[in-house]
Design a protein around this nucleic acid. Sequence first.
DNA 1: CCGTATCCTTGTCGATACTG
DNA 2: CAGTATCGACAAGGATACGG
Lengths: 130, 130
Amino acid sequence: MKPELFKVTPACQAVTEILSRVGDKWTVLVVSYLGNGPMRFNELRRTVTGISQKMLTTTLRSLERDGFVLRTVYPGVPAKVEYQLTDLGCDLLVPVRGLSAWAIANEQRVKNARLQYDAAQNPECAQAAE
Amino acid sequence: MKPELFKVTPACQAVTEILSRVGDKWTVLVVSYLGNGPMRFNELRRTVTGISQKMLTTTLRSLERDGFVLRTVYPGVPAKVEYQLTDLGCDLLVPVRGLSAWAIANEQRVKNARLQYDAAQNPECAQAAE
DNA sequence: CCGTATCCTTGTCGATACTG
DNA sequence: CAGTATCGACAAGGATACGG
């Protein structure tokens, strides 16, 4: 059950960095939707419930900069901009979905652990008025 | 190359939550080291370079609450506390290492994409005195 | 339609000091 | 040794207004 010895090398810096990028509030959601095919800005805005215009722009710019997303502008009035995953973006989707699958499969175990922990901390004196 | 259609369901909430937990500054690092076997508090503190006492405590408490880490106190003077991964913690290590492997394998592709993007934004005025 | 700019609130993290 | 408590710096995120 115990996994084989894991030597933490300087390469872990890269891991931490990717995790931070991917672990923000909207990145995974946007990338997942884009995994279905190209989408326009406002289409994405409507689909990703709750995202603000600013955060969508920010998220897309980061993804574009890191090479995960391709931004294509079709000139005209009004302007039309389309976003789609690059090959790198599609590649990223694989391990991300691995973690997604784990999260969905183990959601309840984590919730149970929390309930148990919280219950152990507050035996019964939950009045705790202070 | 394009992955099969991915329907984003409410379950994505669980995904986002796990990603956020795991995507913070220290969690993955601590869990990875703990993957090598049980460790004591200060041992961990020395090993995880740069972590503050507060953040180590906070990170370990969260991990304990979520059922990823088991905390064992050996009474005595001075006190001795040992941390180790639970089964759930070991399980989590699997998809996390998947993403880690991806990050290490693709680090350079991302870096190149960034260089290219930045270069495109700053045509030639790269003196960038900073 | 597709953004950028600004302000403001909130959360995260680190430094420091102190306790059992 | 293994924490807790407090404070302050800073970054992330959201609301709103404006521009191309």
